[in-house]
């Protein structure tokens, strides 16, 4: 079957919320309401003529006015595929910190959706309700923000690890600012401590940490300049 046949079957089976088929697109797609997503996917998976056994990909796309979640389904038996979309409108002033859109999870239908949805939550901040294991997957658990949002701000460091290009190395930082005061010197030791004789490396002493605020970073998530690294 081609996309048109699948769409007409789907629109007939699922009572409401199934939009028209956009045939002008390169991959014709159907937009469904978030509320009718699970019935639509259930139908596509179980119907004998559709038999979408495989969920290839789950993608969240951030646009100006909405976030849309795109599902690429395909059938190994019938060798056809379909693109399904669902949209969540952006509220006024919805930034990546304040606005977390919610879409029902299809992880109960396809095991492959589990990791894909976790990844979209991690990178784009789309919450999939009723997901069995809704954690971050690629970034550390304690990461702040969702990096693929357009208004994401790059961090300076994470978990004590510097992420800036001109950050002061960790080991030099420790020498410059000792964490605890040196123990009182026992009697009989020389007043002038010689440098560590086993060290091959030039002494790092005197490297003052640069201003931690201000323009420490030379790299900024700049606007798209069309290349030219």
């Amino acid at each position: 079957m081609n996309e048109t046949d699948i769409h007409s079957k789907l629109a007939g089976a699922v009572v409401s919320g199934v939009g028209a088929l956009d045939e002008s697109a390169k991959d014709p797609f159907v937009v469904v309401d978030p509320g009718s997503l699970v019935p639509a996917v259930t139908f596509l998976k179980n119907d004998a003529d559709c038999r979408m056994e495989m969920l290839n990909c789950v993608t969240a796309v951030e646009r100006e006015d909405c976030i849309e979640v795109v599902y690429h389904l395909s059938s190994v038996t019938h060798r056809h595929s379909l693109t399904l979309k669902t949209r969540v409108e952006r509220p006024a002033g919805g930034t990546h910190e304040s606005w977390i859109p919610e879409v029902p999870s299809v992880a109960a239908l396809y095991a492959s959706a589990d990791w894909h949805e976790r990844e979209q939550w991690d990178l784009l901040g789309v919450r999939f309700t009723d997901h069995p294991d809704h954690r971050r997957i690629l970034l550390p658990e304690e990461w702040i923000g969702h990096p693929l949002r357009k208004d994401y701000v790059y961090p300076h460091e994470h978990g004590g690890m510097p992420l800036d290009l001109d950050a002061v190395p960790l080991y030099e930082r420790d020498e410059a600012t000792p964490s605890e005061p040196a123990a009182p010197r026992p009697s009989g030791t020389p007043l002038v401590q010689p440098p560590n004789p086993n060290s091959d490396r030039p002494d790092a002493g005197g490297v003052a940490p640069a201003d931690s605020d201000g323009d420490l970073r030379s790299i900024k998530p700049g606007s798209n300049d069309g290349g030219g690294h």
């Binding site: 970034l139 990461w143 790059y154 690890m161 510097p162 992420l163 950050a167 190395p169 960790l170 080991y171």
Partner: peptide
Amino acid sequence: WGYNTVKGVHKIIP
């Protein structure tokens, strides 16, 4: 554009 990459391992270990 690497939001989580360390720009050189010499920031971590000598």
